[in-house]
Amino acid sequence: MTEPISRQDVAHVAALARLRLTDDELDRFTLQLGAVLDHAADVAPLDTAGVPPTAHPLPLVNVLRDDTVVAGLERDEVLSQAPAVEDGRFRVPRILGEAP
């Protein structure tokens, strides 16, 4: 189908997924993901020209709700689950970059 997944590829997807891997893990995951992708490569030679993708098993469209306010959650209950709170807000360490 494509090139086998490389150690670099695994490092890249780990970074995209915000996971840190040790060198050993990087080796092991590269092998394991390679084996799964190799099996997945079975679907590559199938002739799917003109076959539409299925994103969803249901033929539903236009599921809509009315624009009516519904009671939400109490702030205290919400914030009780937060790792850190300040001034009624969720506290996080400094943010280095602006949103993309």
Partner: peptide, 24 residues
């Protein structure tokens, strides 16, 4: 990581897209 890879730029069609067509 597998899913991130299957959706990432350059691989979407070969992996995720093809899998959706196999689903069909």
């Amino acid at each position: 990581m597998l899913g991130t890879y299957a959706l990432s730029a350059g691989y979407y069609d070969a992996y995720y897209g093809q899998a959706q067509r196999v689903r069909t």
